[in-house]
Amino acid sequence: MADHIEQQLAPTPGERTAIFFKRTDVVRTSLLFIFWTAVFVVLGVVFYPKWMPLVMSTELKSAEAIMVWFTVISAPIAGLVLAITSNAFLNMHRGDTPPPDGPAVRTNGPVVAVWTITSLLFALVAIIWGLTEMNGQAVAAARDAKSAITVEVTGSQWLWTFNYPAQGIETHELNLPVGVPVVFDVKSADVNHSFWPVQLGVKVDANAQVTTVIHTTPTKIGAIDVKCAELCGLYHAYMETNGAVMSKDDFNAWVTAQGGHNA
């Protein structure tokens, strides 16, 4: 059927395109393409924001944006792959003997070229997007270094402790003032851990004898969960503690209550 049409190709490229898009399998594939693309767009746009915790920093915001937007950008590619696949599936041949042979297309230069270039562009988008975000975060960290408060984080099997050198307090809860940049200096008293204040969207491993550093600026008031994201033995699952981003006044009051002094 399809081959029959191919035999009487119309002379001009425009007419060939028109005929191509009138082929039933092409029409079906196009509809499936729209369907699958929409599915992926919805998956990305609706579900990720729904699942993710409260976004309390620009870092988490940018992680969420990557998850949502990369899904949207890849939706047409996924849509095309799934459209062709599901069209073939719907077109199946049942029975105990093989179907008749299909067209002997061994390759199609332009298709391979366009496909490769598209995936190259797609990879470039992902790379440039990532590098831009990383650069933005590095610039912000450098800019905010002076105004930042420092929290020294120590992971020990199976608890986190926090030292606020400027405030002179040590605690097992991570409280932070809103809008003030913070630098976490992270180390471990024993095996590897990974410091993960979930709602702040940053993470860095805690190692013995070396200090690793991450920066963020809490943008919203609310509770944060501090977890360990690196398997560290028996009670890794329970290596969690709570904390909060609070107004500056509340933070100062908390520091005072802990016996510290406000810088």
Binding site: V81, I84, A88, H93, P98, G102, V111
Partner: peptide
């Protein structure tokens, strides 16, 4: 993702206009 994309292309290219058994 570029060479990985080629693997997908090979599979869907073979499926295209086929009637899979």
């Amino acid at each position: 993702s570029i060479p990985t994309g080629l693997l997908f292309l090979v599979l869907i290219g073979t499926l295209w206009r086929g009637k899979p058994w």
